[in-house]
Amino acid sequence: MSETKKADAKKTEPKKAEAKKTPKTGKASKAAPQEAVVTSPAPAPTPAPAAPRSSVRKTYKLYIGGAFPRSESGRSYVVTAPSGEFLANAAQASRKDARDAVRAARSAQAGWAKATAYNRGQILYRIAEMMEERRDQFAQQIASVEGVNVAAGYAQVDAAVDRWVWYAGWSDKLMQVLGSANPVAGPYWNISSPEPTGVVALLAPARPTLLGLTSVLAPAIVGGNAVVVVAPDAAAVPAVTLGEVMATSDLPGGVVNILTGAPAELAPWLASHLDVNALDLAGIEAGSTLARDLEVSAAENLKRVVRPAAGYDWSADPGLARVKPFLETKTVWHPVGI
């Protein structure tokens, strides 16, 4: 024991000596006050040619409950560009990841719905700010995943950022537009107001990757819902980056949960899950057997379903078409004059 300590002490000695030397050189430079700029004490020897730096590759993971876990199943799949070029290994979510995501969404939903509309709007705007910051990264990813040129990538990022800002603005206006004070025959105030429906499962479209994801996500969460979104296949790459944006935007963990993988595998579990209150089938082919089956499963607990539309134009003004289906109207009667 003592021998090893001695050996350690010997090893550390030369380091101490070096450390002592450096302050001396510092003093030397102080001794020459006429030098306005402090230069390095001795001319550095020409550096040896650096060894080739090993690349640090990103692991594309899921985004559940504010954390970035790998798939519970341990599976992953290869994301390739349309040209066939390898882009990334993405986590392939399983039904248990879907279940965990629903649980995370359920526990986050009440708090998110209770936040003031103003606060929710601020956070949505913050997401736009954070995306703007990563504009180049998103544009590159869209270009490589969709096989379009970088200019088209930039155009899509800008459209997506603008969409977040647009929905952020809607946050504290939904009440005025969708709510009402109703005339009734009696001494009552009768007031209708929109309330979030709860946990919404979203099946994002395959193209456009980022704009499609944004266009299903933002309208679902602006009213106070928590969501589980499935980013299909290659859309995983910008989706994971969007998850990183969410994680740094003051959005409470669990309000948005992102699963990557095969919608055909995950959608039936989400459609039949009794703790999911609504379903957006945007990413499922319109009129397909899968779309029909999902709607049948969703009927079990009367989920609100948004059907897929063939040839939907994601760049057009969306209006409130994707906001309204995820809001329920609560009407309150209150006696007048008391």
């Binding site: 579990w269 039949s272 899950h273 703790d275």
Partner: peptide, 9 residues
């Protein structure tokens, strides 16, 4: 039943 249930039930 083969489907996930929830705390509402």
């Amino acid at each position: 039943t083969g489907v996930y249930s929830g705390p509402d039930y």
